[in-house]
Simulated scan of single mutants.
Amino acid sequence: MLNFQLIEGGLAMEQPRWLDDEEQRTWRSFLLASRLLFDRVEQGLKQDADLSFAYYEILTRLSQAPGHSMRMVDLAAACVFDRSRLSHAIDRLVRQRWVRRTPSPSDGRGQLAELTEEGVEKVRQAARGHVDQVRSLMFDRLTREQQAALREISEVLATGMVDPPKLTSMGWPSQ
């Protein structure tokens, strides 16, 4: 965050708090590892199941929801999508016959996204290779202690960017 200070003749911005060499290495390592991981996961899903990671995330969230159905607003929060992006994605998944939209019985204006039988099959088809790849790229390379440290760091980063109640709506695991 940049701070302002008063100087003769007006306001001036202070210099940013530049990253030191160790912070720069940490930031660059994090970026590289994150990008490589998500690129490989995306490639694997496209190659094995002809599915993008975003669509896989939607289908997986629906497959784990009670009745394979979620309110669109809750699904958007869980996938960290804005409503417009989710709506476009759901339209594509409806055309593939993997998802259907239904009116929300509890809210006349709301809609549910519901996984179809074809969608259940698609998620099953993609899941095995995806989980094997995630295990190979991440968990098999880390000790249990490193996994715990990564989870703790990720939780600190996430809770610093989003209020805890919103994290719950995103499907944040309970402690």
Rank of each mutant, 00 (worst) to 15 (best):
W27K: 05
F139E: 14
T102W: 01
L62Y: 05
L142N: 07
T102C: 03
A127H: 04
L6G: 05
Q96N: 14
K122T: 08
L142Y: 13
Q111F: 02
L36N: 11
D39A: 14
M161T: 09
D132W: 10
A158V: 12
D132S: 14
S104G: 12
R124S: 13
L75T: 01
G9E: 14
V131C: 10
R92A: 15
Q5D: 10
L31F: 03
R35G: 05
E22K: 05
L11P: 03
Q15C: 00
S174G: 08
G67S: 10
A127N: 00
R71E: 10
L36M: 13
S136A: 10
D74C: 00
A126E: 05
L31S: 05
S63N: 08
L51D: 06
S169K: 14
V73D: 14
K46Q: 15
R151S: 09
G44P: 00
L51I: 12
I153T: 13
F139S: 11
W98G: 04
S29Y: 06
L93V: 15
L2I: 15
G108M: 01
T168K: 02
M170P: 01
V94A: 11
V120I: 03
V131Q: 13
E14A: 03
A78N: 03
L51C: 15
T102E: 15
R124I: 11
H68V: 02
D20G: 05
D74F: 00
Q64M: 15
P173T: 09
K122F: 02
Q47E: 13
A78D: 01
I58C: 09
M13Q: 09
S69G: 00
S87W: 08
R17P: 06
A54H: 05
D140K: 09
P103T: 02
F38I: 00
M170V: 02
W18T: 11
R28C: 04
Q125S: 07
E118N: 04
L62Q: 03
A127W: 04
V162D: 07
K122P: 07
K166D: 06
E23Q: 15
E118K: 12
L150V: 13
Q47C: 07
Q24C: 10
Q15H: 00
D48C: 07
T159S: 09
L93F: 14
D39M: 12
P165S: 08
S63F: 02
M13C: 07
E118Y: 03
S84Q: 13
G119I: 15
K46V: 14
P103G: 04
R61V: 06
P164V: 01
R101A: 01
G108T: 13
N3H: 15
L157G: 07
N3F: 14
R35K: 10
Q175P: 14
P165Y: 00
D21F: 01
R101F: 05
L45S: 09
M170Q: 15
L37V: 13
Y56I: 05
P164D: 06
A148K: 06
E14W: 02
L115M: 01
W98D: 04
D39C: 11
E152M: 05
L31G: 04
E57R: 08
T116C: 07
Q15E: 02
K166W: 11
S104H: 10
D107C: 01
P165N: 05
A158L: 14
S169Y: 08
S87K: 10
L2P: 09
H88W: 04
E117C: 03
S29T: 11
